[in-house]
């Protein structure tokens, strides 16, 4: 595999990514993991040890619901869907992220202030 920068996931970022992954429709757990891997071109390594707890926690908070469906290969698969509450949460996360990254970017790109 190629060189890869591992970005530590900030607290809550995984949850935001999960919500985002479900914003186009239902997905099962593996699908969510794959989507994150693909969209970040494998730069973000999703720890599977934290993906499932995060998913179930979102479900307990009522942000996503799950339903057992049958796959093409006739297997029982648990699919997750965003709830209305989850959708609102995603919007909130998004705007917060934007403000956060804007502030951090500005801070990191700033020049040495001129002294009077």
């Amino acid at each position: 595999m190629n060189d890869r920068t591992t970005v530590d996931l900030l607290q809550g970022t995984l949850a935001a990514l999960i919500l985002k992954s479900l914003s186009w429709g239902s997905l099962h757990g593996y699908g969510i993991a794959r989507w994150i891997e693909q969209i970040t071109e494998d730069e973000l390594l999703v720890e599977e040890g934290s993906l499932y707890p995060a998913l179930h926690r979102l479900q307990a908070r009522g942000l996503v619901t799950s339903e057992w469906t049958l796959s093409d290969t006739n297997r029982r698969v648990r699919c997750y869907t965003l709830t209305e509450q989850g959708r609102q949460q995603l919007r909130a996360e998004l705007s917060r992220w934007e403000r956060f990254s804007e502030v951090v970017t500005r801070a990191l790109q700033s020049r040495r202030p001129r002294t009077a």
């Binding site: 599977e48 499932y52 179930h56 926690r57």
Partner: peptide, 23 residues
């Protein structure tokens, strides 16, 4: 290798689900 230790995951997820069910 990729999934790590499934028992840990199972335990953690289980406790989350059970608490949610109780509530």
């Amino acid at each position: 290798r990729r999934i790590g230790d499934p028992t840990t995951i199972r335990r953690e997820v289980r406790s989350i689900d059970e608490r949610a069910a109780r509530e």
